[in-house]
């Protein structure tokens, strides 16, 4: 039993790192990355069955004992997202859903109006909703009021690897959150993940930074350490930033040289 459990809607997850599976060149690479990351939950997309594909992401997750979190990736409207969540619930027999409703392909930024609409509909239908949201504290508040079990603000747009563009907003979201805050999207490298945790996020969800790294499994290990290190640093309490130097050695007792 951890002394710092990560709990979402009463479910304890063994890792604060949630892995996306998109962008990997093969299921074998996903498999290696998820083992290396020690993740406890992975997100998957819902698409038409293609009889030409062999192997199933669900088999990989089952074999590794990793919880599946279906998403509504690609949806542009609340109607599409709700329909996709219903499909996922039927296919995967889970009422947890990562809710994504993006406005356009160029930015892949969430459409706030459609997002809140979809969240309200899904919560009313008994879903446990984890919304991918803008780094907007007021929108995060609205999503919590709608009954979401977590909020997942972006660090920067999906796939950019630009890190956390507005740490002040992430801190604001964390400071008033009543549900877990999971930094989702924009992570480029391990220091970004550590920074998210230092800002007080409860977890990090990332995909491209691992699946598109030159060595995905090695980057997955780095991310696991980064999330743990960031969490430990947050709990340890960092020193305040100062404008001027402050000696760490005693100023008394200097020899006359």
């Amino acid at each position: 039993m951890s002394d710092d459990p990560f709990v979402i809607a009463g479910v304890e997850l063994a890792s604060r790192l949630i892995l996306g599976t998109g962008g990997a060149p093969s299921l074998a690479v996903v498999d290696e990355a998820l083992v290396a990351s020690r993740t406890a939950m992975c997100t998957v997309a819902m698409r038409r069955i293609d009889p030409r594909t062999s192997g199933s992401i669900i088999d990989v997750l089952d074999r590794r004992g990793v919880r599946v979190l279906p998403n509504t990736a690609g949806c542009r409207t609340a109607r599409e997202a709700v329909q996709t969540a219903l499909i996922a619930r039927e296919a995967l027999e889970t009422d947890w859903v990562k809710l994504e409703v993006v406005a356009d392909e160029r930015t892949l930024l969430p459409d706030p109006l459609e997002l809140v609409d979809a969240a309200q509909q899904l919560v009313a239908d008994g879903f446990h909703v984890l919304p991918y949201t803008n780094d907007d504290p007021i929108l995060a508040r609205r999503l919590q009021q709608a009954g979401c079990i977590a909020v997942m603000p972006l660090g920067s747009p999906i796939g950019t690897g630009l890190g956390i563009a507005n740490p002040h907003n992430i801190e604001l979201i964390v400071s008033e959150a009543t549900v877990p805050v999971i930094l989702d999207a924009g992570i480029g490298t391990a220091s970004d993940a550590a920074f998210a945790m230092e800002l007080g996020c409860d977890g990090v969800l990332l995909a491209s930074s691992v699946t598109r790294a030159q060595d995905p499994a090695a980057m997955a290990v780095a991310m696991a350490y980064a999330v743990e290190a960031g969490r430990l640093a947050r709990r340890a309490g960092r020193i305040p930033k100062r404008f001027h130097a402050q000696a760490s050695s005693p100023t008394e007792g200097m020899a006359v040289l």
Binding site: G20, A24, A45, M46, R47, S56, I58, A88, E100
Partner: peptide, 10 residues
């Protein structure tokens, strides 16, 4: 008829 399954993504 649409037949759908989970795939890598997100």
């Amino acid at each position: 008829v649409e037949l759908i399954t989970a795939v890598q993504g997100g």
